[in-house]
Structures are given as structure tokens and as C-alpha cells.
């Protein structure tokens, strides 16, 4: 197969980027998209040019490292798959393919197609954990969790933190990621004691990072390689509202008592 690639090239966060075009030949349909880029890079290196930098690691759709907006779609045209799981058989011979990085102010470009997703880590730092000291846990079966709840928590926990939801959202909103993270823990009894603080702090951090607001386009859900449901966003909104109401109540009671 033959392709014409338009690839975003950018030296670093400070310089402006540009598209460069490459033609590539001899690709087979069972090659993965990233293996196609490997071939391109091999060729660029051979020609004495700098290869295209792109993020990837596990190449099996679980680490969440790979990114790439392929022909206008984060992770490319295949539903429920990451870029590393995308195969060239999804494209037609001779097609022109445009490859861009995730584009969001909160994901600055580091080089070419590589972006900095540290903002996601900071959202977790704000409250995406259960405070349990190592060794202080009760027996794992001491707190039963209804199967439906555990399954639903798992549905949310399946998020790989890739950022495709942000990339796909017309507002570059991180609501799907944050919702998945908040709901995973808030659904479980183990996460209940901190649920209010968790949701308030995580949302506050999400906003501070400069992600946009959700206007319910649902592009995130469609782009998510793990099929995280946008229903979690509604639940996040509810969690936040109740958390704020409850914390108001609590501070009122505290000042009344004090």
C-alpha cells in the first residue's frame, strides 16, 4: 500500500509547528499504524533526516501512551481502539493521511506529535486516591461490595488516561477523564469517606489546568478507546453539587456550633 502523510512537525513547545508531507510505499495491510510510522522513521533516518517523534509504549492498547489525531479523529477511524491497535487495513491504498498531536492548551506539545499530559497526573494528585496507609487495610472481604457496584466502578476504572477525550472534545474538556476517575472511587464503599473532598478538589484542579467546559457534545465518549460512558459525567456533576451542598451545610453547622 501507498500513502501520502501530512505530519505535524514542531521542534518544541516554544516554536511554531508546521505540516510536512511524506510519501510512503510498501506498507502491508496487516501492519499497525505505528509500525507504518516506524517504517517512515527508518526511512527518514536513512535519508539523514530527523524522525517523527510520537508517544507509544505498550503497543497493545493499555498503557495509554500513544496518541495521534489521524484524519481528524483521535486514535484514528477504528472504534474502541487506540492508535497502536489501528491497522493499515482500515485505510485505502493511496489515501492521504493527516496526523496531528492532541491539541489542547492543557496538553502543550513537547515535540512533533508528543504532548505533555502532566495535567492529568495533577488532577489525580488533587484527590484521585483513597487515603489508606500501607499495611493499615482491613481484610479484603471485610467490606463486601455489591457486584453491580464493583462492575460499574471497573467500567470507570478502565480509563487508560490517554487524553483522547480531551483531544476529541470541541472544547478540549477533560470531563470524561475526570468523571471516570472520580466515579471509580466514589462508587466504592472504600472511597466514600473522601468522596466530597475528592470531587471538589479534582474538579478545581481540572479547571485550573485550563481544560474547557463540557457542553455535552459526547465526542469524548465516541473517541474513547475504552468505551467510557458519558453517563459518568452526569454523575460527576451530581457528585459535585451534593458535595458542595454538604460542605456548605457542614461549615454552617461548624460555625453555628463554634
Amino acid at each position: 500500500m501507498k500513502f501520502k502523510l501530512n505530519v505535524w512537525r514542531q521542534d518544541n513547545a516554544k516554536t511554531a509547528g508546521r505540516f510536512e508531507s511524506y510519501s510512503i510505499d510498501g506498507i502491508t495491510s496487516d501492519q499497525s499504524f505505528l509500525e507504518m510510522l516506524d517504517v517512515l522513521n527508518e526511512k527518514l533516518v536513512g535519508d539523514g533526516k530527523e524522525p517523527v517523534a510520537f508517544d507509544h509504549d505498550c503497543r497493545e492498547g493499555i498503557c495509554g501512551m500513544c496518541s495521534l489525531v489521524v484524519n481528524g479523529r483521535p486514535h484514528g477511524p477504528q472504534e474502541h481502539a487506540t492508535t497502536c491497535q489501528l491497522h493499515m487495513r482500515k485505510f485505502t491504498d493511496g489515501e492521504e493521511i493527516t496526523i496531528e498531536p492532541w491539541r489542547a492548551g492543557a496538553f502543550p506539545v513537547i515535540r512533533d506529535l508528543v504532548v505533555d499530559r502532566g495535567s492529568f497526573d495533577r488532577i489525580i494528585q488533587a484527590g484521585g486516591y483513597i487515603s489508606v496507609r500501607t499495611g493499615a487495610a482491613p481484610d479484603a472481604n471485610a467490606i463486601p461490595v455489591a457486584k453491580e457496584i464493583a462492575d460499574r466502578a471497573m467500567d470507570a476504572a478502565a480509563c487508560i488516561g490517554c487524553g483522547a477525550c480531551v483531544a476529541a472534545c470541541p472544547n478540549a474538556s477533560a470531563m470524561l477523564f475526570t468523571a471516570a476517575k472520580v466515579r471509580h472511587l466514589n462508587l466504592l464503599p472504600q472511597g466514600a469517606p473522601e468522596r466530597d473532598l475528592r470531587v471538589m478538589k479534582m474538579v478545581e484542579q481540572m479547571d485550573a489546568e485550563g481544560f474547557g467546559a463540557c457542553t455535552n457534545h459526547l465526542e469524548c465518549e465516541a473517541a474513547c478507546p475504552k468505551g467510557i460512558s458519558a453517563d459518568f459525567i452526569g454523575e460527576l456533576n451530581r457528585d459535585l453539587a451534593t458535595a458542595i451542598l454538604r460542605s456548605r451545610e457542614a461549615s454552617k453547622n461548624a460555625s453555628a456550633g463554634g
Binding site: Y129, I130, V132, T134, G135, A136, A137, P138, D139, A140, N141, I143, P144, V145, A146, K147, A150, D151, A153, M154, A157, H184, L185, L188, Q190, G191
Partner: peptide, 19 residues
């Protein structure tokens, strides 16, 4: 297993709620 369950690792469960 205790530690991980307490951290919120959503291990598979039986209908009774146990692991």
C-alpha cells in the same frame, strides 16, 4: 490483596459482594 482492595482496586466480585 487487603491493601489493594482498600485502595479501591475493583477486583472481580461474586454476587454476595465478596471477592
Amino acid at each position: 490483596i487487603d491493601q489493594c482492595a482498600a485502595q479501591g482496586v475493583p477486583f472481580a466480585r461474586e454476587y454476595g459482594g465478596l471477592l
